[in-house]
Write a protein that binds this DNA or RNA. Sequence first.
DNA 1: CTTGGTCAAGTAAGT
DNA 2: ACTTACTTGACCAAG
Length: 327
Amino acid sequence: MKIGYPCVNEAMDCSAANTFRLASYSEERLVAAVTANLACLRRLLEWNVAQGLLFFRMGSGIVPFGSHEINTFPWQQHFGAEFRALGDYIRAHNLRVSFHPDQFVVLNSPSPAIVQRSIEELVYQGSMLDLMELDGTAKLQIHVGGLYGERELAISRFVGVHATLPAAVRARVVVENDDRLFPLRDCLDLHARTGVPVLFDNFHHECLSHGEPMHEALRLAAATWHPIADGVPMLDYSSQAPAERKGKHTTSMVEELFRGFVAELHGLDFDMMLEIKDKEASALRAVAILRELGLAAPAPGGPVPPLALPPGPGTPPKARAKKVVKS
DNA sequence: CTTGGTCAAGTAAGT
DNA sequence: ACTTACTTGACCAAG
């Protein structure tokens, strides 16, 4: 089992999401941003390896406006060597990586233009994995899309569009159960009709399901992944933020809940993404717990004391102080 | 240097 | 009709 976290490392002094405004687009800005993003991504992966975090969701903004018509720069060629080097590193350390295109990717939209832009975004993100020369186990994780008041029609539109995806994209797309519209059952239906693997999200399942017990849900989702072509099933883990709106992710992993969830696995293997606000901090705690349980590979040099203390006054300042969020 | 409005893109539920 | 929530910050013009 590999443990990961999404996109951002809060302990690190660089960002892999440098961008700029569309209105200030220029090739100079683009090259500068991509150069910085790839360099940071490399450092970030090295940090992860040192910490035993072997799963990572890369951010969608590595190439700003990567699927926008304004961006005609041949970044694939210009940065080909850098992408390839990242891929070499990922394979050399047996890392698992993925992308999660954001909410604007809606394959089942009734609007052909939105579907087209969604496909272009998937092509952009998939092409980064292609440039890294990663196999089909590096995934693009999306949701089913909109409901539009007619569930069966909405699902059928997804099936239709899925069949038209470029093969390179289709080999990577996986669909995640969401917390408001399309629960596990609909995703399993989609799998039956398209072969798309189902990426199970335990917290979404707690918010929206047909009552499948957690272990049964895990078993059903895991069975949709081909062991070779798709790799170890991926899983999103989170839990409810106490005293917050239903569906809000917790700010920090609640150990008792996490241990309870792990007990539901009953030996099923997953690569687990912790969708928790404090990012790598909770992921590191998860690694420690799973090592204790013998479910994650031990540290290469044997057990080590935790390197990362909770963020506090002693934390080295980032390049720019964090803004205080007002209530 | 700090602040606050706003940022490419979609959908649905809430006021 | 407008705001907010997604998984989430960061750009950038103005003070």
